[in-house]
Amino acid sequence: MQNERDAFIAGLIALAGFLKANPEIPVSLAPVILRAFPANGPDDQMRAEVDRVAALLGTEIDPDHLPYGHYMTAIDFGPVRYEFIAILAAARARHAAEDSYRGCIKIDNL
């Protein structure tokens, strides 16, 4: 696990160095978001993991996402944002139900 983490961080640093050394390479002016998730489990365990990460980041839980069943915290580094999100059981079930209709509805070509 640590080797994967180290490789990921090294890749980010290499990309940043490459872009810095090659200013002619275009980059997005839109925000860049890196999302990470706790392992799926009971809601209370996933919320506890997000709370733990929020404490490490020195951030709060984002109340704007609670109505959607996303328990999250985030920190910004300029236009780069790190989010740690638990998608709670009701939101996962709602998504699965909505997704169960995928491919069932056919639109006639006019």
Score class of each variant (00 low, 15 high):
Pro23Thr: 07
His65Asp: 09
Leu57Trp: 09
Ser28Lys: 07
Ile85Ala: 08
Ala16Tyr: 07
Ile13Met: 05
Gln2Met: 02
Tyr82Leu: 15
Pro79Lys: 15
Leu15Gln: 11
Gly17Thr: 04
Pro31Arg: 15
Thr73Asn: 08
Arg92Ile: 03
Asn3Arg: 14
Ala96Gln: 14
Glu49Ile: 12
Ala36Met: 03
Asp99Trp: 02
Leu29Lys: 15
Leu88Trp: 07
Ala16Val: 08
Arg94Gln: 12
Ile33Cys: 11
Pro23Asp: 04
Gly41Phe: 04
Gly17Gln: 12
Leu19Ala: 03
Ala14Glu: 02
Gly11Ile: 02
Cys104Thr: 11
Ile33Leu: 11
Leu19His: 03
Gly17Cys: 05
His65Glu: 10
Gly17Val: 00
Arg102Trp: 00
Val53Gly: 02
Gln45Pro: 00
Gly41Glu: 07
Ile75Asp: 07
Gly41Arg: 09
Asp62His: 08
Asp6Pro: 00
Met72His: 05
Ala36Ile: 10
Phe18Cys: 08
Asp108Asn: 10
Leu15Phe: 01
Glu49Ser: 09
Glu24Thr: 11
Val50Ile: 14
Gly78Ser: 10
Ser28Trp: 01
Arg92His: 06
Gly103Gln: 06
Asp76Gly: 12
Arg47Cys: 14
Phe8His: 04
Glu83Met: 10
Tyr101Lys: 13
Ile75Ala: 07
Ala21Pro: 02
Glu83His: 07
Leu12Val: 07
Glu24Lys: 15
Glu49Gly: 03
Ala10Thr: 09
Phe18Met: 14
Ile13Trp: 00
Met72Gly: 05
Gly11Glu: 01
Asp108Glu: 11
Ala96Glu: 13
Arg94Ile: 00
Gly11Val: 01
Asp108Thr: 12
Asn40His: 09
Asp76Ser: 15
Tyr82Trp: 11
Lys20Glu: 07
Tyr71Gly: 13
Asp64Cys: 08
Ser100Glu: 04
Asp62Met: 10
Ala7Ile: 01
Ala16Lys: 14
Asn40Pro: 05
Pro23Arg: 14
Ala55Cys: 01
Ile25Trp: 08
Leu15Trp: 01
Gly11Thr: 06
Ile107Phe: 02
Ala14Met: 05
Ala91Pro: 06
Lys20Val: 00
Leu12His: 08
Ile25Met: 13
Met46Phe: 02
Ala90Gln: 15
Val27Asn: 09
Ile107Pro: 00
Ala96Pro: 01
Ala93Thr: 09
Leu34Tyr: 13
Leu19Arg: 12
Pro63Gln: 10
Pro38Ile: 14
Ala74Leu: 08
Tyr71Ala: 12
Pro31Trp: 04
Arg47Trp: 02
Ala14Asn: 12
Ser28Tyr: 01
Ala91His: 03
Arg92Cys: 13
Asp64Ile: 09
Leu19Asn: 06
Ile87Cys: 13
Val53Phe: 04
Tyr101Cys: 08
Leu56Gln: 11
